[in-house]
């Protein structure tokens, strides 16, 4: 890394590291939803990125409706989260009923079907919102940046996304490990037949889980609008990285998903500065493949006897 002084390097690491944190946040939110769905139903949801886009467009619509009211922008920032969640949740609930439930136990078919669904949804977005990207205005107080030293500049919206991600992650943890719904989800994930035989309505659990996973992708979409503009295919850019996170983290492990999202986002963001985006992606992918060869179950594997 010739040509950089130690001070330069520190600043680069901090700032790229922070850019990585925003990326990490969106990635983690996406991966949480995907991991819950995959862990529960072994469904690989290729349309997960499109559910993120639903959240992003929902945020856009909400903001467009409120921005001309006094203080509307401030309100919409907070309203966007539940609205984005709800929009993606409702669509997810419907899609599970319409499509996914007929394809359980047929992983290849679900892969194809959800991929087709992704294309249909993308076209739907194009028809509804146009091919041009839309961007969501951010209220002034989120627009500034925090400058601890002369060389380091950390955008406030990134900090806000971080905070949101922490909150959502805690909520997901609580939902999975402390609530009655979570118990049902974990039972069904562990043993579907037996869950039915102890009285759990596993089909209802499936539908709810799928919808909640989609809803979390919707929240990711709301976060996404503050770091980038939204187009019909924005979701497909994230889906590969999200899969990487889920597989690398060890499906079904919350800690693994967090650790994996963090390392992948950071590695990419920091390498990107030195060698450009595609090279950084290739290197990340190779490293992940290498680690998976050594630990096929992912970073965090369950330690209990079966």
């Amino acid at each position: 890394m010739g040509g950089f002084s130690a001070q330069d390097l520190t600043a680069i690491f901090v700032m790229q590291g922070f850019a990585g944190l925003s990326f990490f946040s969106v990635l983690l939110l996406m991966a949480l939803g995907l991991a819950i769905i995959y862990g529960q139903m072994r469904v690989i949801n290729m349309a997960h990125g499109e559910f993120m886009v639903i959240g992003a467009y929902a945020t856009y619509l909400l903001t467009s409706a409120l921005r001309h009211l006094p203080g509307g922008l401030d309100v919409s920032v907070f309203l966007a989260i539940p609205v984005a969640f709800l929009a993606a949740f409702v669509v997810g609930y419907f899609i599970e009923w319409l499509l996914i439930r007929h394809l359980y136990h047929r992983p290849l078919d679900t892969l194809l079907a959800t991929w087709g669904l992704a294309l249909i949804m993308q076209q739907g977005f194009r028809s509804a919102f146009g091919a041009r990207e839309v961007s969501v205005p951010v209220p002034d107080w989120l627009r500034g940046s925090y400058r601890p030293t002369m060389m380091i500049d950390i955008p406030l919206n990134g900090l806000a996304i971080m905070l949101l991600t922490v909150l959502v992650t805690v909520a997901v943890w609580w939902f999975l490990y402390r609530s009655r719904w979570g118990l049902r989800v974990r039972c069904t994930t562990a043993n579907r037949e037996m869950s039915g035989a102890v009285g759990i309505n596993t089909k209802r659990v499936d539908r709810m889980t799928f919808a909640i996973g989609c809803g979390i992708a919707g929240i990711a979409g709301a976060a996404f609008t503050t770091i980038s503009s939204t187009g019909p295919t924005s979701g497909s850019l994230y889906i590969v990285d999200t899969f990487l996170v889920v597989v690398f983290g060890g499906a079904g492990s919350l800690v693994g998903t967090i650790a994996s999202a963090f390392s992948i986002a950071q590695a990419q963001s920091i390498m990107e500065f030195f060698m450009g985006g595609s090279m950084a992606k290739v290197l990340t992918l190779l490293t992940v493949i290498g680690i998976l060869l050594l630990r096929p179950e992912g970073l965090v594997a369950s330690k209990v006897r079966r």
Binding site: L183, C187, A190, N191, M194, V198, G199, I200, V304
Partner: peptide, 21 residues
Amino acid sequence: PQGRMIFPNLTVMENIESGLE
């Protein structure tokens, strides 16, 4: 069931609670 088929990753308490559904 034969072979018991408890939920191995759930605590004993959670296993029992699953029967309250």
